[in-house]
Design a protein around this nucleic acid. Structure first.
Lengths: 335, 335
DNA sequence: CTGTTAGCGCCTTCAT
DNA sequence: ATGAAGGCGCTAACAG
């Protein structure tokens, strides 16, 4: 049983005080000369040697307790197994790895109860801040979090009810791009398919489509948990109504519709042209590949992380951060 | 700035000693009567009331330091943004959430350097154990981890070089199923396509295919980082050679090949029948849907987590765990 | 340049 | 049934 090595052990071994060891450990890289605490090169070497030989590792628990900081961030996404959020998670993971923070991930599955439990669980772990994708019903929980003064950044969807720092995609612009792309291909009858869910990403897109199309706006909404069945129904409707252009507000509905249409012998991209939001590798099977609105996921992730950490650092420095409520809107691109 | 509430605060507020508070906090659920430390119902109520009113949260750092346990587990996968590992990550996340552990995730990107850095980073955070997918070149790092006595479970691939607890899919059986399924459909000429990577999941499948097919075994390997180009090349070859059956050892090559074939006018599932390992929603677009070997990801995840935690608890109880090196092999199913 | 000391918040033994 | 006190490993202020 290899007992844990502490600074005390290495202090004894090196014949110095624990304070010296502590100091040396915190400057192992340091050579900036400005350290107000000087150690002779000689003892420094000796301490480092012993620490290395004993394979010393500082106890993060002790350090956290002492410094009152965990450098942990709680991340709540809808579902990390969905490629869209999976990529965000991956980007956040990379960012954290490079910046000395640790992201703790949780998936709400669009369930406000689960969302709330995750928040509690993260609070119990003393995360220093949150990055969350709110879901229908998470409002009170988010609000409470906000008021508790814990740094928080919302991504992907905005909360209509209150001001909170957010990093979002410009869904209005994106929808305009999608409609324009379809029109330029000469389609006559466009339908817009989204989720029957009152989250801003969906409603912003719907409303923009309605505004552009006016009287001609055909909008269908699928229940979140019955996408495949609904796609079958809609596919028949599409054929019957002679719809030749389709905008889908998310990748899951897209794939379901493509499948249903393809199996009915509809020639994708010829009989019916599509533009989708978000990516699926199904899009690439067809030629030309199905164009899609590509949200800047890497930028969203790093921007959110950077903003949050700025808040965290500010708060750690004793500043009042309650005034920061920026909404950062990033453009999407059609690919 | 809401200062953090400690047991001391609530002790003062409730007019009791901190010891009592601590005791009550650790038995807030408890009512088993066997507690060797009794508190009058009255003071207990009072303490709970105060704690609740002040919104007390135990400091996890202090608790970790005191108990010497973090309940954190380091997980290293290949790439959590790949749907295959994304699902595993998601399953592990769920498991941890329900069992009071926290999974820290990292992606190696098949790079042994990155793998090693992740291990270091997790060790610095005092994780109590590891669940890892080894990659080419990670051998020394894994071995070192193993020898350090830190609980470790390997998943998805086994290490040929040494014995370590593992949870794996039965790739031999799975490959047999795949070949059988294709043969039953009356195909004449089967090719097997995998990654040019010496990881056991790939090599086990290749070897099984070779054993079954003998002289007729056609095996192609794609470079991990040039799948699309290689798929184009192979698609031509498939047509030219009159191959009518294809087994792909992973979902990424499958999709690339499907795309290349489809764009050449090959009728998927008619001219060429496929069976793939792992899932992609591309498979469902065709009819009949492309059959695939579905690995029991949920079972792999929970089995690995349970095994690991058993090791962790055993070690925490002072037992010697160096003798545990079980290899648990789970069957896949063809869907 | 180096050592001493006082906690960070919690749990736990030992008194009372 | 309750309280006092020590210490987990580390940092930072203060002495020497």
């Amino acid at each position: 049983m290899t007992k844990h090595i502490t600074i005390k052990d290495i202090a004894r071994e090196a014949g110095v005080s624990i304070a010296l060891v502590s100091f040396v450990m915190n400057n192992r890289i340091g050579a900036d000369g400005k350290q107000k605490y000087r150690v002779s090169e000689d003892t420094k070497k000796r301490i480092l040697e012993v620490a290395n030989r004993l394979n010393y590792r500082p106890s993060s628990a002790a350090r956290m307790l002492r410094k009152g900081r965990t450098r942990d961030i709680g991340v709540i996404l809808s579902d990390t197994a969905n490629i869209f959020y999976g990529i965000i998670a991956r980007e956040l993971e990379n960012w954290a790895f490079q910046h000395g923070y640790t992201m703790l991930f949780g998936s709400s599955d669009e369930d406000p109860e689960k969302f709330s439990k995750l928040v509690q669980s993260f609070l119990n772990k003393d995360v220093e801040g949150f990055i969350v994708v709110p879901c229908v019903g998470s409002g009170p929980c988010v609000k409470q979090l906000m008021e508790s003064g814990r740094p928080l950044v919302v991504i992907d969807r905005h909360h209509p009810d209150f001001d909170v720092p957010s990093v979002l995609t410009d869904n209005i612009d994106a929808t305009e791009q999608a409609v324009k792309a379809l029109k330029e291909q000469g389609v006559n009858k466009i339908a817009f398919v989204s989720y029957a869910m009152r989250i801003s990403s969906m409603t912003d897109r719907e409303e923009t489509f309605r505004r552009i199309m006016g009287e001609d706006a055909i909008i269908w909404k699928m229940p979140f948990d019955r996408v495949d069945e609904e796609a079958e129904r809609l596919a028949d409707k599409i054929i019957q109504m002679g719809i030749d252009g389709l905008i889908t507000a998310s990748n899951v509905p897209s794939v379901a519709l493509i499948k249903a249409l393809f199996n009915r012998g509809v020639r994708i991209q010829q009989d019916v042209k599509l533009v989708s939001f978000d990516y699926s590798n199904v899009f690439d099977v067809f030629s030309p590949p199905i164009p899609h609105v590509q949200q800047p996921l890497a930028a969203i992730s790093s921007t959110a992380a950077e903003y949050l950490v700025k808040l965290i650092e500010a708060k750690a420095a004793g500043e009042d951060i309650s005034g920061h409520k920026d909404k950062i809107i990033l453009k999407a691109s059609l690919r």
